[in-house]
Design a protein around this nucleic acid. Structure first.
Ligand code: MN
Ligand code: MN
Ligand code: ZN
Ligand code: ZN
Lengths: 141, 141
DNA sequence: ATAATAAACGCAAATGATTCGCAATATGTC
DNA sequence: GACATATTGCGAATCATTTGCGTTTATTAT
């Protein structure tokens, strides 16, 4: 079923007419299997033995975000981190500040508040970004 | 009172032992007065007549974030945007996707949920990033 | 007010993450 | 298996941000 999530991404990629290439397959696998927010460089190092170029990793990440199969972590230092994600259900993540491990928060806690926010601010609301930060059980002091 | 918010930042800067210089004063004023999420380059252009270097603008923004007087917008394209903020009270922002205008959401909607998130994910929660995106009244279609 | 001192500035060069051009290659199709 | 074309790897280019350094400025003490 871990396998399954990668395979869902493979399928969606192909359904949209993109080729399922080795670099894409490997990047998707790593993102899903590690369950961590990873940088392009980290992915490149994890895949060092495969001879995949850093450019292809960047291109793959861009495509995955476009397809909703990955998203950029909001807390960005110098390097952007990416999180594997399944498209469709709107939800959020908690990311370990030490090891980058990601857990899903399977539903959105905020939709009930969008009306309140609209009334208070006079803005229409199109979307929001929410990410929790903390420590996973392995990294907790 | 708009003036006031800038002055609060001026005061905090000095209270922490930093010099209140012309570049710092001007960057703080712009961020507060425009009420928009601005890039370093935009600030540089807004302050073109003052002969302030881009380097100083970057250095000032870094300091303001460090002091909690500004924060980086979470939806970052290529250039990072910065939002003036008063330290102390935890709250969030809604940012206009067209003009960058910012409104405060004066309280945090999420603290009640942190327990739930902790229980569900097994993570301890240290913080979260939340930002709404939409259109201000002037930019609404 | 003036001088002293360190912080902060402006400038130009450096850095470094990300992007791009292009020839070579791999993938999906017939 | 051969074909057409999307995608790759490589190296160069880009460009936002950072840094080194000599000069200027804000603050504190005469
Ligand atoms: Mn997810
Ligand atoms: Mn604010
Ligand atoms: Zn962890
Ligand atoms: Zn607007």
């Amino acid at each position: 079923m871990i396998r399954n999530m990668s395979h869902n991404s493979f399928a969606l990629l192909q359904a949209r007419g993109y080729k399922l290439t080795e670099p894409r397959r490997r990047v998707i696998e790593q993102l899903h299997d590690r369950r961590r927010a990873l940088t392009a460089l980290e992915l490149h190092q994890l895949l060092a033995s495969e001879g995949i170029s850093l450019a292809s990793i960047y291109r793959t990440l861009e495509l995955l975000v476009e397809l909703g199969l990955a998203e950029a972590a909001t807390r960005s230092g110098d390097e952007q981190r990416y999180i594997a994600c399944s498209p469709g259900q709107h939800h959020h993540h908690i990311v370990c500040s030490r090891c980058g491990r990601v857990a899903d928060i399977t539903e959105c806690l905020l939709e009930p508040f969008e009306d309140v926010v609209r009334e208070r601010t006079g803005f229409t609301i199109e979307s929001h970004t929410l990410e929790f930060h903390g420590y996973c059980s392995a990294c907790r002091q």
